[in-house]
Simulated assay, not measured.
Amino acid sequence: MDDNESGARATGARLAADGYAVETALGGIQALEVLQDWTPHIILLDINMPEFDGFDVAAMVRKIGAISHVGIIAMTGYDEYELRKRGSLAAFDGFFRRGECDDQLITLLEAMLDREGSCLQSSDQ
């Protein structure tokens, strides 16, 4: 979920090419609308979005019972220190700085999905 359409589409296309199911939203309100009908495993959430910023959307997602467990990755051009100055990262499960190698994003996604799978497997036993 990103307000930069070309960036959102490019990231979505890369993830889709790697076999991920992708939905794109271009702002905080549209992100929440998409989440009414679709429950992803992980949300990539831009910090700087119109209407509601990424901090706001992440906090709202954590309050919606059906999707409160979904992994959320903060995506931004800021480094993690700058982000922490702007707001709490408590609602986020991961952090990806734009401009880093796309392969690092894939590695982060795979690690989060592996953790999720481990949690699901252990709770089923």
Results as ranks from 00 to 15, higher is better:
F95N: 08
Y81F: 14
G28D: 02
Q36P: 05
I64C: 03
T24Q: 12
L113P: 00
I42V: 15
G65N: 12
N4R: 04
N48A: 09
G19W: 00
D102S: 08
A10N: 04
A58F: 00
R62L: 02
D18R: 15
D124M: 04
M60P: 00
F95G: 05
E33Y: 02
D124A: 14
S68I: 03
L26Q: 07
K85N: 13
L89Y: 06
L120V: 04
Q36T: 09
T107L: 07
E23K: 07
A111G: 12
E116C: 05
F95C: 09
I29L: 10
Q30G: 12
A13H: 12
T39E: 10
R98H: 13
Q125E: 08
Y78M: 15
E23C: 03
D114C: 08
E33T: 15
D53K: 07
D93Y: 06
T76I: 06
G7F: 05
N48V: 13
G71W: 00
G99W: 04
I42M: 12
I73Q: 00
H69T: 14
T39V: 14
R9L: 13
F95H: 04
L120P: 02
S88E: 13
A91M: 09
A91L: 11
I72H: 01
G7H: 10
G54L: 08
L32G: 02
N4A: 08
L32E: 02
G87F: 05
S68D: 05
D56E: 13
I106Y: 15
I72M: 14
L32A: 03
Q36D: 13
G117V: 01
C101E: 08
L89R: 07
K85H: 14
G12F: 11
G77Y: 05
V57T: 10
R98G: 11
I64V: 14
D124N: 03
S88I: 06
A111P: 01
R98N: 04
D56Q: 10
T24A: 10
L15W: 06
G99S: 05
A13M: 12
N48Y: 07
F55D: 01
S68N: 11
A25M: 08
T24L: 15
G19Y: 01
P40F: 01
K85S: 11
D79I: 09
A16T: 10
L89P: 04
L26N: 11
A31Y: 03
E23Y: 03
L45C: 10
T11L: 12
M112T: 03
L44V: 09
L89G: 09
D2V: 05
A74L: 02
H41V: 06
P40M: 08
T11Q: 08
M60Y: 02
M75K: 03
I64H: 12
M1F: 09
A90K: 15
R97N: 05
T39F: 02
W38H: 10
F92K: 01
C119D: 05
C119E: 09
V34P: 08
M1E: 09
E100F: 10
D93A: 09
M112C: 09
